[in-house]
Simulated scan of single mutants.
Amino acid sequence: MATFDLELVSPEKLLLSRPVEMVIIPAAEGEMGVLPGQAPMIVALKGGVIRVQENGQVTERLFVMGGFAEITPGRVTVLADEATPVAQLSRATAATRVQEAEAAYAATTVETAPEEREAIMARLLAAREMSVAAEAA
């Protein structure tokens, strides 16, 4: 089966770099499956799970808090704000992050800039997705 190169990079390190058959990414517009030969594009990512498929099966699941993906016909480069293998997610850490994000959102006021309120909401939604992923792990 045809493959393409997948690289997943977070600020801390290169998490993944190898040929894969398919990757499913949590694009801001919804989940997006990427196959070899995909049309070039750059997409924003929301908090969610990246699923890597090889030999017709999911071989890796990584949680990202957001970021961007650059897609070309032969390569996908994911630049994640933060990335963690799903198996390493902690329910307690996820619950704490949800509480912190909910508190930050509750503290917003009418004077809070719309862009700031949107960023806080994105963190809250990503934290909730992290909690769901940690529960499923």
Rank of each mutant, 00 (worst) to 15 (best):
A39M: 15
A95G: 05
Y105N: 00
E129W: 09
T84C: 08
T77K: 04
A101V: 09
L45T: 06
A92L: 12
E118F: 15
T93S: 11
I71E: 05
L35M: 15
V110T: 14
G48E: 06
V43Y: 05
V64P: 01
M130W: 08
A80H: 07
L125K: 12
E70K: 11
V76R: 01
M22Y: 11
G47S: 08
I24T: 08
G30N: 10
P85D: 12
E118P: 00
A69N: 01
E70D: 15
S90Q: 06
I25V: 15
M121A: 13
Y105W: 14
S90P: 04
L35Q: 10
V64F: 01
G33K: 05
A87C: 01
V76I: 02
Q38R: 15
I42G: 09
S131L: 15
T59I: 07
R51G: 02
G74F: 11
A104S: 13
A113S: 12
E102H: 08
R97H: 14
A107N: 14
A39R: 12
A104E: 13
T84M: 11
A94R: 03
E116S: 07
E54P: 01
T112G: 08
L124T: 07
G74H: 12
L35N: 09
E54I: 11
R75A: 04
M130H: 05
V64C: 02
V78Q: 01
A27S: 11
V110S: 12
A69Q: 01
T59K: 09
P73F: 10
R91G: 05
G48L: 07
S90T: 04
A44C: 04
V86C: 06
R123S: 09
E111Y: 12
G74Q: 14
P19W: 06
E129M: 14
P26Q: 02
G56Y: 10
L125A: 14
I71P: 03
M65R: 15
V43S: 13
A83L: 06
T77F: 00
Q38L: 06
P114W: 02
R123W: 10
P114H: 03
V52K: 05
R97F: 10
L35D: 00
M130R: 10
V52E: 03
Q57P: 00
D81M: 06
A126K: 02
M32E: 00
G56W: 11
E70L: 07
T108V: 15
R123K: 15
E111H: 11
V49W: 09
R75F: 00
S90D: 09
T72M: 11
V110G: 05
I71C: 04
P85W: 11
E70N: 10
E31S: 11
G47E: 07
T108Q: 10
L62Y: 01
A119N: 10
P36D: 04
S131K: 13
T112D: 07
R123V: 05
V76E: 00
I50K: 04
G30Y: 08
A113C: 01
G33Q: 05
R18D: 14
S17H: 13
A83C: 07
G74R: 14
N55F: 12
Q38V: 03
V20T: 04
E54G: 12
E111V: 10
T108H: 11
T112Y: 08
M130Y: 08
A27F: 02
S17Q: 13
K46G: 08
R91S: 13
N55T: 14
T108P: 03
